[in-house]
């Protein structure tokens, strides 16, 4: 059962390699996740397996089909321009905003010095 393939033969994985170590390193950097070379090496086949599998979506004829925007038909509501109308989404809560800060000082969030 484990590793079984309930969805049938169409889910068979291709051996297409679409990402290499350099790509994985670039993606990790873009996602700001530090990775070791071993981790990259392990991720390459994993990601390729998943990517090869999702590539079957390419078979679907989507001509004239709009990408989904709202899963349940619904329109964007707009709120009134009122300050602190709902205290849960209003300001003047500096203590709450800073209460979990790893380096909250003098009302600020501290981060390592940024050189611009």
């Amino acid at each position: 059962m484990a590793g079984g393939n309930p969805a049938g033969p169409s889910f068979k994985r291709k051996n297409a390699m679409s990402v290499d170590t350099a790509t994985v390193a670039r993606i990790a950097s873009l996602a700001r996740i530090k990775v070791t070379e071993e981790e990259i090496a392990a991720m390459v086949p994993e990601l390729n397996g998943i990517l090869a599998w999702v590539e079957q979506l390419g078979e679907v004829n989507v001509e004239g089909i709009a990408p989904m925007t709202a899963v349940i038909p619904n329109k964007q509501r707009l709120r009134e321009d009122i300050v602190n109308a709902d205290p849960l989404t209003g300001g003047d809560v500096q203590d709450k905003v800073l209460s979990n800060a790893p380096a909250g000082e003098h009302g600020f969030f501290g981060v390592p010095k940024v050189i611009e």
Binding site: R32, I33, V97, N100, A101, P102, A103, V111
Partner: peptide
Amino acid sequence: GVRYGLRDLPQGAGLQDMYA
């Protein structure tokens, strides 16, 4: 790691290193 939660700040790390 800026406003809440875990922060891992290796020695000498800059902002983007801290994120990663």
